[in-house]
Amino acid sequence: MKEKLTAPETGKLWATYMGNSMSSYILSYFLEHIEDPDKKILQHAKDLTEELPSNVKEIFTKENVPIPYGLTQEDVNLGALKLFEDECHKMNMFSMKMMAFGNSVAVNGRHDLALLHGKSMKSVSSFVNDAAAIMMETSWMETPSEVVDRDHLTSN
């Protein structure tokens, strides 16, 4: 018999569902307004945000937990004026994805949830690496500076 969801597990799944619901619509807005013809990385981010909520819905249904409403098309005006430059859209899209998974694994003790979060983290981590590489190649994000010469520091 499977253990029931704990309060922290339920809360994290709820937050994950709501966060991905919001991210999906933010990314829809970004995709509507970005001028860069290569929208693959943003579309990939949107696809990731739409994958996890279906998994959460499945768990909540099995556990008899109400499914959150999340955001809908009525909450977002895709025709609103462009607010940001393309660089900002691309920087935000990958930071949003990483924030969603920071403590996912730590708050659960169930194997099925650990697998779900682990799979998601692997997908998101790969996505973030790809996005960061693109942004460094296009100078939208600085390549991190090198560490100071520690031998020189210790010799003084």
Rank of each mutant, 00 (worst) to 15 (best):
T72V: 07
K90R: 14
D86W: 09
G70I: 11
E74K: 10
Q73A: 13
V124S: 02
K82S: 13
M136G: 02
V107D: 00
K82P: 01
Q73M: 11
H89W: 02
E87N: 09
L81G: 11
V107H: 07
F84L: 15
N77C: 12
K122A: 06
A133N: 10
V128S: 03
D75C: 12
G79R: 03
M98K: 05
L83E: 04
K82W: 04
S104K: 00
H111T: 12
A106S: 08
F127H: 07
M98S: 05
E85F: 04
S123K: 15
Y69S: 10
D130L: 08
L115T: 14
L116I: 02
S104I: 00
W140D: 13
S95C: 08
S95L: 14
E74I: 01
L81F: 02
A114T: 15
A80P: 01
K122Q: 06
M121Q: 06
V105N: 01
N129R: 11
K97A: 11
R110I: 11
N103S: 14
F101S: 02
F84Q: 05
D130P: 00
F94C: 00
M96N: 06
V107R: 00
A114Q: 14
R110S: 10
M96D: 07
I134R: 08
G70P: 08
L78A: 00
F94H: 10
V124W: 04
N103E: 10
V76E: 12
K90C: 10
M135S: 09
L78W: 12
A80M: 11
L78I: 06
A80V: 00
F127K: 09
N103Y: 12
N77R: 09
L116D: 09
